[in-house]
Simulated assay, not measured.
Amino acid sequence: MTAPRRGSVRIGPISLFTLIITLCLAVMAVLSVTTAQATYVAAERQALFTSDTYANERAAQEFTAKVDAALASVRAAGGGQTEARAAVKRILPAGAKLDETTVRAEFTAESGRTLNVELIIEANATYRITAWKATTLWTDDSAGKTLWSGTASTR
């Protein structure tokens, strides 16, 4: 009787190709999950930022509507700039300022998004918007890495 032969395990080209494809798919799966998570976090941040922008915009629109209503009552009574300033001063929210004929108000959200509004009270008890500027407070809470210094060092 012949003893059964013990052969070595042979990895053929198909098996090797299958192993490489499996490894590539695993790497692609990990990269896809990581990218999806990063995109989700960025989308959440953008949603918060947009929501704060709209909240500031709404508060500024309501403020401007109150100023407009106060000035409309002065115009209806035939008042001038002095009466208009007095009427606007009565309705100013906390943090808003009235300097001579300029009304300044700032609306800030938790995210650092700020809306600065500036109105000028005209002589006929109307107003003119001179500034409506949205800004964001920059907070650098990470050490970060410099990707590019801005200079070309080729020698």
Rank of each mutant, 00 (worst) to 15 (best):
A105H: 02
A60L: 06
R113Q: 11
A47C: 07
E122A: 12
V88S: 10
E83K: 01
A43W: 00
I121L: 15
A65N: 13
A87Q: 07
N124Q: 14
I121F: 05
E44Q: 10
R58D: 14
A105E: 09
Q81C: 02
A65W: 02
G80S: 10
E83V: 01
Q61F: 11
K66C: 02
T102E: 11
I120A: 12
G95K: 09
E122Q: 13
A86M: 04
T102N: 06
L115K: 09
A96R: 00
E110F: 07
Q46W: 06
E118D: 07
I120D: 13
E44M: 13
A94N: 04
Q81S: 14
T108M: 03
G80L: 09
R85W: 02
V103M: 06
E44D: 11
A47F: 09
V67D: 04
E106L: 11
T53V: 14
V117T: 11
V74H: 04
A55R: 11
S111M: 11
I121C: 09
A96W: 03
T101W: 03
T64G: 02
A84M: 04
V103P: 05
R85L: 13
F63E: 05
T82D: 10
E100V: 13
T114V: 15
F49Q: 08
G78E: 00
T114R: 13
K66R: 14
Y54F: 12
I120W: 07
F107D: 12
A72K: 14
A94E: 13
D99I: 10
E62H: 07
Q46E: 12
L71S: 05
V74M: 01
R90T: 14
